[in-house]
Nucleic acid binder design. Structure first.
Length: 556
RNA sequence: GCGCCUGUAGCUCAACGGGACAGAGCAGCAGCCUUCUAAGCUGCGGGCUAGGGGUUCGAGUCCUCUCAGGCGCGCCA
């Protein structure tokens, strides 16, 4: 039970009693919501139940609040006091002992603390990154990778069974262009003058791949027909780039359970099956030699081509098949993480799912806004074709995994992100992530100190937590107690960034407390109580940082 | 032109499925290390939440219009 649940039960009970006494009459409604007041004097938790109920009850909000208050039956278990305030808020002040026992509970649970139940073991598929295998991952992908990985961890922490998937767009014109670009560079390396593909990829990495092929296979593809070199160049280019992508993701501590290839969907007949399904449902038609999907029937701006005039499939066709396949796998929830440049694609995918009777509410698409990279105070140009972009690899080398991930994860998905490389490097010691990590390192240091001084730790049950009486200590206890509901709420909202805010608050509360109250003193019981508090903070820091994929160092 | 996203302190961003007096960090100023890590702590200043209308007991949050920025508007992916 979390604090919010405990109090919500109490309030629900009061509500039921008030109805039983005939003082309130509205039969049902939402379960009472509780929120953290922004201002200190407004209690530890507040409810707006009376405000919501008042118009339905045709009573003044304060009157409703009084009635609820009168029916509150806490028997001194949780509450210190409760009061009606402002227009009709119910403010709850919770006993210090409640918070202390919450810490004891935390310590009993250890690393399991904060494990949520809202997932109920439901299966979630999270698809993210899914960058085209036509070049190395850049900083935009890094944001998606950080968010996706953290989101997957978060959902898992909230009790979902999560699968992480990367969709490889290894079919179509882009990878064809990739192969041609590499071949052109291959010929150039041998001194041949060949035309470079018009829309070809001009990044330096193309030469790298060409050079590797030349070293590995020599000039054997110099004077052969396209049918001979093309398949080989395609495969080798894809393999090389996917290798880069995998190792970059690994270095960024981003994990995937499954890699789904677009070509495999064609190979396994999934695309054909999907198209015939759509056709059978009367959702496609032929126009100008191309097969269109009638997406306008589902709110799209125009109908979309799925099979081109030349008989090739569009990316959209295989993507419909991919999503249909995901639905068929029986997930309770599917989450797609897309870059803002794919935002215009949302309507048509939802349209396709509707057309196939896949319930769209099981699919949630998170659009991630762009990243602007600042180098030396100026925006760095990002153009994949020209090969100008800041790579994930570079970010890792310059900024580091922890700082980069934390920075990506302090912003909401739909907010544009400015990533200043100079600031991240130069001021690395002032980076918020170090502030949080430092709190963890300090706590570890405390336990080393305690061990050196031969302080014997007690079992959880034997610690005198009532020795924790300072306002800063109580404040810390409260922070810790709010972690479990935070996990559930962030997961529900698909917003891992709430955890970074929480971590900064928690670290600040800890640093403040640490500065003001010495942990290790001659007072044995007090020392043990404060160590227990520090341990609780350490556990939550580790847990939350772990969800974000940021390390919790023992010393700094 | 149309669609989606954004606009909050000098800068970068928060504000938890509308809630009470909008908060942090950085930058600026002034203090705190003989004692558990100063990558720390304490204090100060800083806002018509882009702007106008509306809904509501209550709006940074919802609706609408205007302005500004980003992304998209391919038989590319």
């Amino acid at each position: 039970m979390t604090v919010k649940e405990d109090l919500a039960d109490l309030l629900q009970d009061a509500w039921d009693r008030a109805r039983g006494d005939g003082e309130l009459s509205v039969p049902f409604g939402e379960p009472p919501a509780l929120e953290l007041p922004r201002k200190k004097g407004h209690g530890d938790l507040a409810s707006t139940l009376a405000l919501v109920l008042a118009p339905l009850e045709r009573k003044p909000p304060r009157k409703v609040a009084e009635i609820l208050l009168a029916h509150l039956a806490d028997r001194g278990r949780i509450l210190d006091r409760a009061e009606v305030a402002g227009p009709g808020f119910l403010n709850f002040f919770i006993q210090s002992d409640y918070w202390r026992e919450a810490l004891r509970d935390l310590l009993r649970q250890g690393e399991a603390y904060g494990a949520g139940r809202i997932g109920e073991g439901k299966r979630v598929l999270l698809e993210f990154v899914s960058a085209n295998p036509t070049g190395p991952l850049h900083v935009g992908h890094a944001r998606g990778a950080a968010l996706g990985d953290a989101l997957a961890n978060l959902l898992a922490a909230a009790g979902y069974a999560v699968d992480r998937e990367y969709y490889i767009n290894d079919a179509g014109k882009q990878v064809e262009t990739l192969a041609r670009s590499v071949y052109a560079r291959y010929r150039e390396l041998m001194g041949d003058t060949v035309p470079f593909p018009e829309e070809g990829y001009r990044g330096e990495y193309i030469q790298t791949i060409a050079r590797e092929i030349l070293e590995r296979e020599g000039p054997r593809y110099r004077e052969v027909a396209e049918e001979t070199w093309y398949p080989s160049f395609l495969e080798q280019s894809l393999t090389t780039i996917l290798g880069w992508i995998r190792s970059d993701l690994e270095a960024f501590a981003v994990r995937f359970d499954r890699w789904v290839s677009e070509r495999s969907l064609f190979r396994d007949g999934k695309v054909a099956a999907t198209l015939s399904d759509l056709k059978a449902r009367g959702q496609t038609y032929l126009r100008d030699g191309a097969i269109h999907f009638a997406s306008t029937a589902f709110g799209d701006d125009k109908d979309r081509v799925v099979v081109k005039e030349n008989g090739e499939h569009t990316y959209f066709a295989s993507d419909i098949a991919y999503h249909r396949e995901k639905f068929a796998r029986g997930y309770d929830l599917m989450v797609d993480l897309w870059g803002a440049d794919h935002g215009g694609y949302l309507t048509r995918v939802q349209a396709a799912m509707q057309a196939l009777d896949c319930s769209v509410d099981r699919l949630r698409i998170v659009i991630l806004q762009m990243v602007t990279v600042l180098r030396e105070g100026k925006p760095a140009a990002m153009s994949k074709r020209e090969g100008e972009y800041i790579l994930l690899r570079e970010v890792l080398e310059e900024v580091g995994k922890d700082a980069a991930r934390f920075m990506f994860l302090t912003r909401r998905a739909d907010s544009h992100l400015e990533f200043d490389l100079e600031v991240a490097k130069r001021q690395s010691s002032e980076n918020p992530v170090y502030y949080v990590q430092y709190a963890h390192a300090r706590i570890c240091s405390l336990f080393h100190q305690a061990a050196e001084r031969g302080i014997a730790l007690l079992s959880v049950e034997a610690i005198s937590l009532d020795r924790l009486t300072e306002p800063e200590e109580i404040a810390l206890l409260k922070h810790l107690a709010f972690f479990p509901p935070l996990v559930e709420e962030s997961a529900r909202a698909l917003e891992p960034h709430r955890l970074t805010g929480y971590l900064l608050d928690l670290a600040a509360a800890f640093h403040g407390c640490y500065f003001q109250h010495r942990v290790i003193t001659d007072d044995r019981d007090l020392t043990l109580a404060r160590l227990a508090l520090a341990q609780g903070v350490g556990i939550v820091l580790r847990k939350a940082l772990g969800i974000l994929g940021v390390s919790a160092p023992e010393r700094m």
